[in-house]
Simulated scan of single mutants.
Amino acid sequence: MRAGAVLAPFRGKKGPASVSLQALRRHVYRQLEPTAWPGKGLSPVNLTLAALIIVAVVAAVLETEPIIASGRQIWFDDFEVGVAVIFLVEYAARVWTVVENPRFAAYRFPRLRYMVTPIALVDLLAIVPAFFAFGGASSLILRFFRVIRMIRLAKLGRTSRAWITIREALYERRYEFALVLGVVIVAVLVSGSLMWLAEAEAQPDKFGSIPRALWWAIITLTTIGYGDTYPVTALGKVIGGIVGLTGVMLIALPTGLFAASFTEGVQRHRARVEQGEGGAP
């Protein structure tokens, strides 16, 4: 097969190699950038990358288990290098095609501007560890930056409406959430202070100061209750019971606010979709 036949789909009307290169760049850009993909959901390339991200993260988790990794470390190392090479190629392709993105095309140096964005730095940090260290804690932590890449790929795909609805829900009730946060902070301070007053003498190692008592207040108000710190005096137990009941009510407040706001956002989205379909010819 002639080389011209392979590049034929990418040739413009003028036919020079530069035009073909631009067409190829646009094609790669549509595959890598979710907003440019004309179909529903993610492109085949992004779907493959998303699956590879999940597999790589699972492998990074399994690598920390001695029973699994014993005698197989070379497999994990080779796999990590292979994944890093794939993502390095993908990173280079994104840098190459970013000039097709209207968001960056207006800059004098669009590629450099893209490379200093947070998401591009995350992409780079997910690649670098494989070429410097294997199995160390720092390397493992950096590999998990790939999970953030997963959010990037899915953000404007099938789940984009859900992400936007969540953002709108949080923004619309921001004042209510701020009020609830203020109430929680006051409740923590009051609870810690009262418990310090009741338990300081009986348990100076755990309630000898308000900062120490704040740990108990936070764990109790959030209804976690680790059990490492608890009151032993009668007054302390009474205060603990009141604080525990208060925590149940405080937890319900932001949950109800978010649920109501999210439901309203979904209903508005459905109404807009129905209006759009009704007005379509």
Rank of each mutant, 00 (worst) to 15 (best):
I239V: 02
T229W: 08
T233E: 00
G39C: 06
A93F: 03
R270D: 13
V85K: 07
P34F: 11
E199C: 02
R26I: 12
R161N: 06
I224K: 11
A36E: 05
T159D: 03
I74S: 14
F87T: 06
G4K: 02
G279P: 10
P118I: 10
P129V: 03
L153S: 04
V180S: 06
L52F: 00
P254H: 01
G265H: 08
R158E: 05
N101G: 10
L52G: 02
P129Y: 03
V147F: 05
F258H: 04
G244R: 14
A187D: 00
L140Y: 00
G240I: 01
F144I: 00
A23P: 10
V184F: 08
A36W: 06
A169P: 00
L235K: 04
A252H: 09
S18H: 09
M150V: 08
R11A: 12
G136F: 01
E172W: 10
G182V: 00
V186P: 00
R167G: 15
N46P: 02
G15A: 06
L245I: 09
G182H: 00
A271D: 12
P34W: 12
I166W: 04
N101F: 10
T233I: 03
F109W: 15
A169D: 05
P281D: 03
G227M: 08
K13V: 13
G240P: 00
D205N: 11
A60V: 05
W37V: 04
V180L: 06
G241L: 01
F177H: 11
A59R: 04
A280F: 08
F177P: 09
Q73D: 10
L140N: 01
G82F: 01
P211S: 02
Q275K: 15
T48A: 03
F145P: 04
H27V: 15
E274Y: 07
L52Y: 01
K206F: 11
D78F: 13
W163G: 06
A213I: 03
V45R: 06
Y29H: 13
R94T: 02
V266A: 15
F131V: 05
S20F: 09
V273K: 13
A59V: 08
F10R: 10
R146Y: 09
V180C: 05
I74R: 15
W216C: 10
A187G: 00
R161F: 09
K206Q: 10
